[in-house]
Amino acid sequence: MAVPTTRMLVLAVVRMLQPVHGYDVRRELLSWHADDWANVKPGSVYGALKTVHREGLIAVEEVGQDGARPERTTYRMTAEGEKVFGDLVREALWSTEQPKHPYYAAIALFPAAPRDEVVAALRSRILKFEADLLHLEREVARVLAGSGHPAEAEPHNVADLLQLAADHTRADLEWSRKTLRRIESGELNVWTIPPWTEEGTAPA
């Protein structure tokens, strides 16, 4: 079973920066690019904070107000939160579950789209991945150039997760380049014979 990532990461940041305000939890996770690699939506962070607070995993440290600014609530981890967080991290570390790649279905349905459109889509995909890879590699270098202290910059292990994302992107990029070459050379041709007849049955 997949670990609830947003829940685990929110607890991690509270534990690391406590006492910490919700805005700083959100900002920290965005600096880790968690919205990209973990699909942590910025708005979901506040919802997760409310949930783990209601469950007794974090506690309110202080509610204060600075001038005309809205009240700021800071949180601290509870003993129960430490236990639950430890269980979540342990489960995530030992997980070998592979993500369900959304492009698999598109590959299976190549024959249902015109060849020219598949070629154009692959070329666009390659350009996107080339840009993504360049960005990720620059981010890895930027994080490693920082102090690595959580109170000052992203921890250095964030560079490792960004490197993993870069490696996945590189693999996807190479697959896309190879597949495009195979289609353009005629080695991969799934358009000569339709895979289905008009009646929806496989050809004899």
Rank of each mutant, 00 (worst) to 15 (best):
L11Y: 05
V14M: 07
M16G: 01
L17W: 06
L17M: 13
V20W: 08
H21E: 15
G22M: 11
Y23C: 04
Y23K: 15
R26P: 07
R27A: 14
E28W: 11
E28V: 13
L29Y: 03
L29T: 05
D35K: 09
N39D: 15
N39H: 15
V45E: 12
V45D: 11
G47N: 15
G47C: 11
A48D: 14
A48L: 09
H53G: 07
E55D: 14
G56H: 08
G56V: 09
L57I: 06
I58H: 02
A59H: 03
E62Q: 12
E62V: 09
V63A: 09
Q65I: 07
G67E: 15
P70N: 10
R72W: 06
R76K: 08
M77C: 00
M77N: 01
G81P: 03
K83L: 11
K83H: 07
L88W: 01
E91V: 04
A92S: 08
L93Y: 01
W94F: 03
W94E: 08
S95G: 00
P99K: 01
Y103N: 02
A106P: 01
A106N: 10
I107A: 10
A108P: 00
L109M: 11
P114M: 09
P114K: 10
R115E: 06
E117R: 15
V119W: 01
A120S: 14
A121Y: 09
L122V: 07
S124T: 15
S124F: 08
R125Y: 08
I126R: 06
L127D: 15
L127M: 14
K128W: 13
H135V: 12
L136E: 11
E137D: 12
V140Y: 06
V140P: 02
A145S: 15
H149F: 04
H149W: 04
E152T: 09
P155Y: 06
P155T: 12
V158Q: 06
L162N: 05
L164I: 13
A165P: 01
A165D: 14
A171K: 12
A171F: 09
S176N: 13
R177S: 05
R177E: 11
T179E: 02
R181M: 09
E184L: 09
G186L: 04
E187K: 10
L188I: 03
N189F: 00
W191H: 02
W191P: 00
I193V: 13
P194M: 07
E199Y: 02
G200K: 02
A202W: 03
A204W: 04
